[in-house]
Simulated assay, not measured.
Amino acid sequence: METLEYRFENGTRALPAQPQVVGVVGSGNLEVLIESAPQGGACTIEIKTAAIGFGPTWQAVMQDFHQRWQLADARIAINDMGATPAVVSLRLDQAVETMLVSAP
């Protein structure tokens, strides 16, 4: 397993307090846990992946995600078993959208 960590500063969109989990860790898939947490206005992302050596690809996908959502004070944990970049993006968007829709 490889662990990758990213931090994106100066987010502008806060999330509701209720954490969300989307996806299932399994063959070719991943699980995303997203929660609101004090991060000094940043969004932190920790990825645990079985696909070793794909740091540049992960970084590109995370930068794209941050540009779309601009999350502030958010913590994201990803457990990956070899999902494609498209599936990663889909699950991340699903997690944020689920949080925003379920907010009171």
Score class of each variant (00 low, 15 high):
L71V: 00
A74C: 15
L33M: 14
G11R: 00
E97K: 12
Q94V: 12
P16C: 11
A17P: 15
A83C: 03
G41F: 08
M81L: 14
Q39H: 09
G28C: 03
R68K: 12
K48Y: 09
A95D: 04
E35L: 07
E5F: 13
Q39F: 04
S102W: 00
Q63Y: 02
E35Q: 10
S89E: 14
S36T: 05
A60I: 06
G11T: 00
P56K: 06
V61S: 08
D73M: 08
Q39C: 11
V32Y: 01
I45K: 04
R7F: 13
G40M: 04
E46K: 15
G11N: 01
Q20D: 09
V96C: 01
R91T: 09
A14H: 06
A51K: 08
T49W: 00
G40I: 02
P85Y: 00
G41L: 10
R91N: 13
I45A: 03
N29K: 07
G26I: 02
D64E: 14
L90I: 15
A60D: 05
T84W: 05
M81E: 14
A86R: 08
G41A: 13
T44D: 05
V32G: 01
P85R: 01
T57K: 02
L30G: 04
S27T: 15
F54V: 15
P104K: 00
S27M: 15
A77W: 13
F8K: 00
A51M: 04
N79I: 14
Q67M: 15
L90S: 15
P56A: 07
R75K: 14
M62D: 00
P104T: 00
G55V: 05
L15I: 02
E35M: 08
Q20N: 10
R75T: 07
M99C: 06
Q59Y: 06
I52V: 14
A74E: 06
F8N: 00
A95Y: 01
R91W: 07
I45D: 04
A42R: 03
V22L: 03
L92Q: 00
G11V: 01
Q20V: 14
